[in-house]
Simulated scan of single mutants.
Amino acid sequence: MHNKHYSNQQLESIALNVREHIIKMSTGGGCFTGASLSAVDLIVYLYAEFLNLHNDNLIDPDRDYLFLSKGHDVPALYGTFAELGLMEKERLANHLSINDHLYWHPNTNIPGIEFHSGSLGHLPSVAIGVAMDIKIRAGKNKVICILGDGELNEGSCWEAVLVANAYKLDNLVFVIDRNNFQANMPTEELIPLEPLQDKFIAFGSAVTRIDGHNYNALRAAFENYPFKKDKLNVVIADTVRGKGLPSIERRADRWFCNFSADEVQQLLQELHGEHSTQLTSETLVVR
């Protein structure tokens, strides 16, 4: 079962609102702003159109599953939950509050969060376990695991790819948020990943590579699920760290940000195309 079909304009509007939520969470302690902004369009598309997940079936055994292995992107997940009715929008103001469970990584006390994450490289194996159980039960559930590209330096990720293909888990999709940064370094300067598609193919997977900010490309890729019978599905989504905010896009120092209230207002203006204030690396200070 798929959710309703949205127009690209509707998805873009939802994504814009999610980016606004992320910016507002980037203060008072901050969050992983740049990485979260790169994943917004992926997460919005998956919840809005691809996954059978909504407010009324979050514990239904027939629901689909999404595991956010790059758990530091959880502001994008919180924002999507708020925009699609899985969480009250007002609750986002509780980010980092001792009175709620919204903090820097996913927490299963929040309905819709399937598993804690934060230590990278763990959730591909969890997703495999769920996908195997579904296969055994002859279920139709889809399982998504979103990984960061820097996360692929964890050997457990590649072990998971081998196991998923060994057990022919074509109900499982690994989505790679390929924003080309690992924490405060470009991936290709630390431990180069390319040719990434060839590596997944060599490990037995069915792979497609797309623009992770293009809803037509996302739709075309996921409408072909499963990509090939008896193979792990892998989507390499090329994205931009800090997407939506030109002043922080593709910057190694915009991984974790803790902006002042004034800087948040400037960034919100930039997000909405208002350029009354010139934003530079000097005016935006990482704390």
Rank of each mutant, 00 (worst) to 15 (best):
Y225S: 01
E114A: 09
I110D: 02
A261N: 12
D253F: 00
I248G: 06
E49P: 02
K89V: 07
I236W: 14
Y78D: 01
L42A: 01
N216P: 00
G273T: 10
V207F: 14
V18M: 08
A15L: 09
I210G: 08
A202W: 01
A39I: 10
S260K: 00
N141W: 02
N214D: 15
L271G: 12
V74Q: 06
L267A: 13
K135L: 09
H275I: 11
L123S: 01
R254K: 05
A252E: 06
H101E: 00
N52H: 14
P246C: 10
F67K: 10
G242S: 04
N180A: 10
H105Q: 08
R19L: 06
S247C: 02
E270T: 05
S260E: 03
N153I: 08
C145T: 07
G85P: 08
G155I: 08
D56E: 12
R287F: 04
V240E: 06
V234N: 06
I14D: 12
E90Y: 10
E12L: 12
K24G: 06
A183C: 04
R254P: 01
V173S: 15
K228H: 15
G71I: 05
I144V: 14
E188M: 13
I113D: 06
G121E: 13
D211A: 13
A39M: 13
V18D: 12
T108Q: 14
N180I: 01
F181V: 05
Y103E: 07
T187W: 09
A35C: 01
I146V: 15
E282Y: 05
S13W: 01
V264I: 15
H272Q: 11
C157S: 14
C157K: 09
D100P: 03
P61M: 13
